[in-house]
Simulated assay, not measured.
Amino acid sequence: MDFASLRRRLLGWYAKHARDLPWRQSRDPYRVWLSEVMLQQTQVETVRPYFERFVAAWPTVADLAAAQEQHVLRQWEGLGYYRRARNLHAAAKRVVDEHGGEFPRDVAGLTTLPGVGRYTAGAIASIAYDAPAPIVEANTARLYARLTGLREPVASTAGQRALWAFAEQVVPRRGAGRLNQALMELGALVCTPESPKCDACPIATHCAAFAQQATRVIPVAAKRQTITEVREAAVVVRRGADVLLRQCGPGERWAGLWDFPRFPVEAEGPLFATRELVAGVERLTGVVCDSPRHHDTLRHAVTRFRIRLDCYHATRLGGRVRSTQESPVKWVTVAGLAEAPLSVTGRKIAAGLR
């Protein structure tokens, strides 16, 4: 493949079509890192307001390192994949504590930071420092697969090996950051998953899938993930003007976030045994409530789970709050829910309480 021609055509296209995105306004490694972590498995337009709020609240990595984790999680709320936020905070602390507030300049150093893998490290190193570091993420993986005519699933071991080998070939010694951004932009805007705009692609003449009329079958689809149906209950327990909250512990779906007492249930729909609900609340919190009344049903999906969440209201009868170091429990006012980082469904329940 003529990489010099490919790069020249791609950069010419990027000069005309690059989107005006807030994280592209500087090569500050803090902003590059923040944007790349936020963009993992998340659309650009979803990320834009979160990025702007984060840099307004914490303009530097030192500011973020000094923040309380609960404040970071509250700002992240709604963006999903909350482990990213916890890793973000932990990595900021490490940059300050171990690197004097300066990000490592190479891929090897960057990958020692929590939550920074090979792709994110390559993006930071190339965009912030112009290091000749390759990148492979969702958009470029699709683009590379079509350019090379890859017939292996992109997520397979063989597929990943081939994609990274191509990425190492295409990245130049100088100008790597701009080229990597152009590759990602072309994947996002032109070489799309469905109906790629091959007639508008500046490098279509370099594309094996285009030549083979195989853009509909490349990249090769991965085996579909099995969807698991899950039923859960959430109980809003009141004590006067207060409601009961529990922080999700390590290993739970929303670790670090606060939620109303929530647990899986066995029976169909909202009409299962009251004692199962009462026992669930007491097991998680130590609080004994009266018979919960069904209030609403929410449906949502998380990774491979499709969840039906039946929401209940109840009143405290007795018992004492039982907290653990990993999963504290507390009473808060309804107004105080605005300050607590909640899951998406927890925030919907809280909105109904107002």
Rank of each mutant, 00 (worst) to 15 (best):
R322F: 03
T345S: 14
V116H: 02
F166S: 01
R9G: 00
L147P: 03
R27V: 11
L245I: 10
T215S: 07
L147K: 01
H71C: 07
Q68P: 01
P219C: 04
S323P: 03
A133Q: 05
G159K: 01
T192A: 06
E102G: 00
H99Q: 05
G101M: 01
E98V: 06
G177E: 00
L284S: 10
R84H: 10
V61M: 04
A340T: 11
W331T: 12
L298W: 11
V171K: 01
A167E: 04
D310V: 09
Q25W: 02
G240N: 07
R231T: 13
V220W: 00
A340M: 15
Q160K: 13
Q40R: 13
R7K: 09
L113D: 02
E52K: 07
T60G: 08
A335T: 13
R216F: 00
L271H: 15
L189V: 12
C311N: 11
A121H: 01
A165N: 09
Q75H: 15
F166K: 03
V344N: 11
V72S: 03
A66L: 11
L10S: 05
R48G: 02
R151S: 06
R239T: 11
M1K: 05
R174S: 13
V334D: 01
A167P: 03
E137I: 07
A108T: 13
D310Y: 15
R262K: 12
G256Y: 00
A108I: 10
R83A: 15
I135H: 05
V321G: 04
T112D: 05
W33H: 02
L143T: 12
T228D: 08
Q181T: 09
S291T: 15
C198S: 09
D20S: 12
E137G: 05
V32F: 06
R239H: 14
E185H: 09
V302P: 02
A241M: 05
T60A: 06
